[in-house]
Design a protein around this nucleic acid. Structure first.
Lengths: 250, 250
DNA sequence: GAAATGTACTAACATAGATTGATATTTGCA
DNA sequence: TGCAAATATCAATCTATGTTAGTACATTTC
């Protein structure tokens, strides 16, 4: 059981809350957030952190690494609905929906921090504005999923993959994890396939096409975008749906 | 400007809130809900009710008819992310996200009731439990969209369409609008195509296949399911994700 | 440092679904 | 009532993506 460092440098979780809030946290609010009792756990790659059907009494924040929300078909096909990066709370919904309707697993090895629902609820009770921020966070998550439906339903594999790369790069950039259009991308081609709704073989082809076009390179789990403008054009990427907006533009 | 009838029979909006709440509303809460000032408006078919990019100061409940949440690609392709039925509040997210990232339009002709954000916020302030119910509602909406990603990404047109029919039928049944496995389905094949992520031509073929198999009939905007068990089997339909659960099972 | 395993990559072939365009059939409306 | 506009239907052809079945690298493990 650890508490977050009260004063130290930006913890991804605190930073995320601050970045989504439409106001500046008071010293009090910030302190309460940092005082959340958090049980840190480490996971290897490809481990389920929670499973569809669970009734968890806690939720968790990603502290390090990538995590994916997915569902499977009875016949075993798998679809990843979202990736989560440090600072995200991928199962925030468990606070209000007892029964989890999706699984969440680690991509590469990762570290997460579990927080009891009761602690969250107490926090929201004491600081309603923080509760609102978390509502906002869950609404933004929903917006990403809606965008993803547009991608899988109405874009072909090539622009669809381009769009995924644009999104990941942008989200990581916000948290300072994508300097010079380069970022970690720990998923295998098989996982990319499950996210894009295509087969691993076709991922490989499409990846080859994007590379050959001089748009990106993906080697040893690092993604580099060489021509951001062309990539965003192909993807028709418009980051509005990410709701990163500076407070006023929002 | 009308207020909801205080005592009269189930208004779909109130009924929805009651059905999603994990507790029984107090007389006070129910009264406050009914006292929400609501501006009723009528829309013809295919009218945008709100548009992507709007910054609305109000949200709305569907009172009658169907409504769809959709996004479009720059190149004009359209993807419907969700259908909404009477009682739903399709743009509840506008309460916390200033900028709308999807459009919502009527399917057939429909009636909606607009409620100012301020009125909603006041309601939540006075009755925090009702605020929690709306948070819950928005989380359930998100769960539906996640399920829909699994469908578009990992199921072929035939089971995908079957799944859509199962979902619509089930949701309408809950509000008492699907007696004897028959319900209104006011959308054209073109709109079905936009929801399923396929072309209208292929909708027609697939619809023909489902009909020929004796599973359904869809005529003059009415859907009848003849063999619910086989349809749900083909769709691999499991309603858990709808979170309709009786309170305790939830 | 050999074996075992997980990834990445390739090629040949199969197919679900897209596209186009023509024709029926409804439906709404004057 | 009947015409115009939406919808639905059908057929022929084309293509993006799936399937299957490999080989070739990397890692990890002992």
């Amino acid at each position: 059981m650890t508490a977050l460092p009260r004063r130290s440098a930006p913890h991804p979780f605190v930073r995320k809350v601050e970045s989504v809030a439409l106001f500046t946290l008071t010293e009090d609010e910030r302190a309460a957030l940092c005082a959340l009792p958090m049980q840190v756990a480490q996971f290897d790659a490809y481990r389920d952190i929670v499973r569809e059907g669970d009734r968890p009494a806690r939720c968790f924040a990603v502290l390090d690494g990538f995590v994916s929300t997915y569902k499977t078909t009875l016949s075993g096909k798998r679809q990843i609905a979202a990736f989560h990066v440090p600072g995200d709370v991928p199962d925030i919904q468990s606070l209000h929906l007892k029964l989890l309707d999706n699984s969440i697993s680690s991509i590469g090895p990762c570290r997460v921090g579990f927080v009891q629902h009761d602690a969250m609820r107490a926090l929201f009770q004491a600081h309603p504005r923080i509760g609102d921020v978390f509502w906002r966070i869950s609404l933004i998550d929903a917006a990403l999923v809606r965008q993803w439906i547009l991608n899988t339903g109405r874009r072909e594999a090539y622009p669809r993959m381009a769009h995924l790369f644009c999104e990941v790069m942008t989200r990581l950039d916000v948290v300072g994890l994508a300097p010079e259009r380069t970022c970690s991308l720990p998923m295998t081609q098989h996982e990319l396939a499950d996210a894009l709704g295509i087969t691993p073989v076709h991922v490989n082809r499409t990846l080859g096409d994007l590379t050959e076009a001089g748009l990106i390179t993906l080697r040893s789990r690092r993604l580099t975008v060489h021509d951001w403008d062309r990539l965003t054009a192909i993807a028709e990427f418009d980051p509005t749906y990410l709701h990163l907006g500076c407070r006023d533009s929002e």
